[in-house]
Amino acid sequence: MALKGTRRNDIKLIAGLLLAAGILALFLHFTRTAGGSVRIEQDGVTTAVLPLHEDTRRTIEAESGTNVLVIQDGAAWVEEADCRDKICVRQGAIRYTGQSIVCLPHQLVITIENGADTPFDAQTH
């Protein structure tokens, strides 16, 4: 089947977008580093910075709702939330610098940072 001009352009566009996403994903994958600390931001204001290598469990309360953050074995995740969609819970665990969990209804951002308070350059498990 001969492809018409617009059809060919469509396919080029789709291939280009997927390629761009792939290159970006590869770049982000190979430049990632294990994080050192967990920054908690509510409404754009930092409310706490916790070390990623200390296991803890913290309830983050705001007017809009509550999220339960767990830090364990160098990873952080939201275990519980009282929002409707629970997207932050299903986002799972994060451990690399720059990764974040976002809870839109509660205006909450949990980000992994390359914290200077890490006692080790790297950790293996």
């Binding site: 997927l18 996403a21 970006l24 994903a25 409404d43 754009g44 990764q99 974040s100 951002v109 980000t111």
Partner: peptide, 15 residues
Amino acid sequence: LGTTRLSYYLPVLCV
């Protein structure tokens, strides 16, 4: 959210 650290999310949204 006042954060620019969401860039790692761009490939997912692009695909």
